[in-house]
Nucleic acid binder design. Structure first.
Lengths: 328, 328
DNA sequence: GTGAAAGCGCTAACAC
DNA sequence: GTGTTAGCGCTTTCAC
């Protein structure tokens, strides 16, 4: 079934059918006839032929580092919701945490004539910038600050400071901060610095730092080594995954949280509520981030002015894993 | 940049360029010239124009019930891996657990000329069957058995029986089975029946059953009510989510697993290893399922013979949450 | 309001 | 091996 068949059935020219399909002016009579024929035949236009001419394909491409990450999935839910109600099509591509594939995907999406690209930020290299520039379609980067590219980032300053204050407000003086490698700007640098800033607002606070892995299993092994050595009464982990790893290690070593020490993470992952005690964390607005990403690219597509950097708010969620210091 | 521009730059006809692009025979000289020009211009063919002619678009569509489910994501990882190395493009559409959207997506993917569709099975209705029939492209359904449509399902019989045997082999006689509603065929019926069968192979085993929710929070509340009343020394939950909920309730009520009772789930979810003790479960091969789904549609596309129903193996993973009954 | 005609960028006979 | 030509299914002037 092509537009030609429909035109023939209706006894009109295919251009008339095209107009009918695209909301151009058509006589009532023709319209009704066409209505009927389209209904009967179940005709629907070939999207490729349409896209061949059209400037817009109504496709939005996303590039995510992995399919099995809590935050990615939440963000995607947000994106999908927003896109769906606007009848836009979502294409998800997976870079498998591989910079080369990330760049490849930028070009691939451009080749598929995606109207815009939402890139879930990891490390942004010059090759990224080059690709983004070359494809010449709106791109927004999520979660990582970038010069010259529109980005949506978390308010790491707020998150870290709030957490730091929360911990000291409970009376903790000796804090263990489990951080990650500095190469990660958002978490390794900004978040860490903000936590320290929050903690330091109280004098006489001692902060001990240890670098651990992003990966649960590795962090768990590291935690088993670290826990017996620390004198801290509160442990702040820069991600929930690390906090979960610490909790597991603590159980294993027969520490009781929060009696032996308070524990907190960052992210607001679901898993922090399924363990017991539930873990105090900072909830990042992943779904909202996804939605905002869509409204942003839409504005960009309409050539509206959008701030190059938008900051998402987050909030501290105090749960059972942190409590007032117990004097012993 | 179109094929015409390239042809002009090279001083050949565009059909030659097309042949060059598609691996047809081209003289060495022309090839080298074209190589250079393509590299310099960064030209890449318009996929829409290609797809307009081609029978195949190299796009595989998937329809998933939600973006934030562990099993879906694992399966998608498997699909993506397999697709990626074959240079096939993955489109993921979300039905948001909504039957109407699921059907819509079938048609939408067909309209986009997806070569095949992988549908993550929930409840399969006649409308599904009708749509699948109408779009007339290969469809495979994952995780739910369907008449007349190719499907990949888990071996619930094996999973349930193995688990049942494991528990009785530890000496447990009084078992609490936390199951879900019967409307779910795979889990509510098949899995439950198999567990009971496995348990019953040992005489003198008493099984108590309680129906609980699929949803963590609800199951957790129910577990808090159920635990104090049961005399069971082992609790089998038909999903890991339920097992996690029981574990949380147990902690809360100061039961110690596995001393007070053994606990087991089904699924092999990651979360069962991050809690402590780690939970005994049956690992379902989600990634492999995804990969198999791809090889299956590929065979279908090549008009090869494929069994209408393929069964995936699974395996019991014994961890810390189950132990020999302690005589008290 | 409608139709004829000219592409959109590419592929695939077919003849040379 | 290469060029010519005729589409793929649709949109979009531009006359009428």
């Amino acid at each position: 079934m092509t537009i030609n068949d429909i035109a023939q059935l209706a006894g009109v020219a295919k251009s008339t059918v095209s107009r009918y399909l695209n909301g151009g002016s058509v006589s009532r009579k023709t319209r009704e006839k066409l209505d009927e024929i389209v209904r009967e035949t179940g005709y629907s236009p070939n999207t490729f032929a349409q896209s061949l001419k059209a400037k817009r394909t109504n496709i939005v491409g996303t590039i995510i580092p992995r399919l099995d990450s809590y935050s990615s999935n939440e963000i995607l839910e947000g994106i999908d919701q927003e896109l769906w109600q606007r009848q836009l099509q979502l294409i998800i591509t997976n870079s498998d945490q591989n910079v080369a594939r990330e760049i490849e995907n930028i070009y691939a999406l451009a080749r598929q004539k995606a109207d815009a690209i939402i890139l879930f930020g990891g490390v942004i290299t010059n090759d990224h910038l080059k690709a983004i520039h070359e494809v010449n379609i709106p791109v927004v980067i999520l979660g990582q600050e970038t010069p010259d590219v529109h980005c949506l980032v978390h308010d790491e300053a707020h998150a870290g400071i709030t957490m730091g204050r929360h911990i000291t407000s409970l009376g903790h003086q000796k804090i263990l901060l489990l951080r990650v490698k500095k190469e990660d700007r958002a978490i390794g640098q900004l978040r860490r610095a903000a936590i320290i800033e929050g903690l330091s607002q109280k004098a006489s606070v001692e902060v001990e730092e240890q670098e651990v892995s992003f990966v649960f299993e590795e962090a768990y092994q590291q935690a088993k080594l670290i826990l017996p050595k620390t004198k801290a009464t509160a442990i702040i982990c820069v991600t929930d995954t690390i906090a979960l790893a610490v909790m597991k290690a603590a159980h294993e070593l027969s520490y009781v949280i929060p009696n032996d020490f308070s524990l907190a993470g960052f992210g607001g992952y679901n898993a922090t509520t399924i363990v017991s005690p539930a873990i105090t964390t900072v909830r990042y607005p992943y779904r909202e981030l996804g939605k905002k990403a869509v409204t942003t690219i839409l504005q960009l597509l309409n050539a509206e002015d959008v701030p190059i950097k938008q900051i998402m708010k987050n909030e501290l969620i105090v749960r059972e894993s942190t409590q007032k210091i117990t004097l012993s």
